[in-house]
Design a protein around this nucleic acid. Sequence first.
DNA 1: TGTTGACAAATAATGTACGATCTGAAAGTT
DNA 2: AACTTTCAGATCGTACATTATTTGTCAACA
Lengths: 233, 233
Amino acid sequence: MNTIVPLLQVEETDHAEASIYERIRDDIIQGRLAANERLKVAELAERMGTSTNPVREALQQLRGEGFVVMMPNRGARVRPIDETFVRDIFEIEVLIEPALTRWFVGLATKADLERLEELQGQMEALNFADPHAHSKLDMTFHQVMYDRHYNRHAVDLWWRHREILSAISRNFQTSLSRQTSVLNEHRELLRCIAAQDADGAARIIAQHVEGSGRHIIEHLRLIKNRRDSGRRS
Amino acid sequence: MNTIVPLLQVEETDHAEASIYERIRDDIIQGRLAANERLKVAELAERMGTSTNPVREALQQLRGEGFVVMMPNRGARVRPIDETFVRDIFEIEVLIEPALTRWFVGLATKADLERLEELQGQMEALNFADPHAHSKLDMTFHQVMYDRHYNRHAVDLWWRHREILSAISRNFQTSLSRQTSVLNEHRELLRCIAAQDADGAARIIAQHVEGSGRHIIEHLRLIKNRRDSGRRS
DNA sequence: TGTTGACAAATAATGTACGATCTGAAAGTT
DNA sequence: AACTTTCAGATCGTACATTATTTGTCAACA
């Protein structure tokens, strides 16, 4: 038997009892732990209700995954997610997502298409009123496409990137122009899938990812500028 | 100041004294720890001359990086690098490496080209007599191209993949047909770089990576078949 | 005789406690 | 003002306790 071992051992968010690892990871992704924030083991251990050792191990794992940065004898910090970092991720996504999409087009069933259209409908109905809800829908939309891909490694990579990015974008409103682009791109994508146009779909996705990246980076710049000028005054 | 934080905190192989993490990682990559081998903390701790805690943390970090697989209450194992896994990695590399190469073409200096030609010359002189030496040269060859890329995230990904792959290919001889392909592809690549043909270079690299992947996978299959039939007899 | 299942002992992972060591900043000195 | 000392706070390493899993034994049974 060939058991599939996920590259990242991310357990399903078990609502019963999350591991220390999951809880810290979630705190980072959900923004409860700010970028660059110091992560003191004793503090976390107390909050989690355990001793320090499990926390230390969780932090090491997170370090391996890139969520946390550590310096010898100086502890751990939440990885600062700056402009450079986001750009790097998006550049990789621009390469990977079209490939995943292309594969999906050749395999999509009628049910898949209907599911996507349903999600798209919900997004249009919501019309960006609730950023959090939209982000979730959008994530599901893409997940439907990539979830069954045989290359788990690539999908894991995508998912990890996606989580980081949605952690940032949760904090600001989508601009009007970006809103229309997102909906248009999704619609066009659906058309390509229905028409079995893999190249077209891949092209749209590349454009979609790139646009999304640009949008986020511009926001980051805005925030940074505001902060910097605030500091000067 | 914008300090660059590497995604993977892989320190240079400090010859003074390697960390536990580095030593275990090296043991895996160099094949001293076999695929799927059980990693007992107490055992490793003794071998490293420390207590168990540092080992546990190193294993967690390696887990985060995907070198080690862990199951609750059942310890850690060296990630089995099977056909699927290799294919997944190569599929990603086929996407990333051409992009990195394209960038390099637009930035390569005369010195770069000379360095590459020198390495290529050494490889041709060696002519696959020493697989280990060739692997090292080949790695350096590609590293020269990617090392200065601004997208550290992508380069780290490439490097990590590369290390895993060269750990496998160390164990078998390169076929004659693959040997000629490798040298030809490198030569053609050099020509494209000299001619500032980014598209051509990207195409060659894609072909190069794909060929390399196919070659490794075929070898893995061969080994697997031999093992299976040996088990049957 | 060979197989199965319950139980016990050994083995190893996981969690807790604590001391040693390092860092960074405040207080003190020249 | 610059340099040193001191010290609280935090990391890192060691030892040990607890809990889970694996292994081995032996009796019951076909």
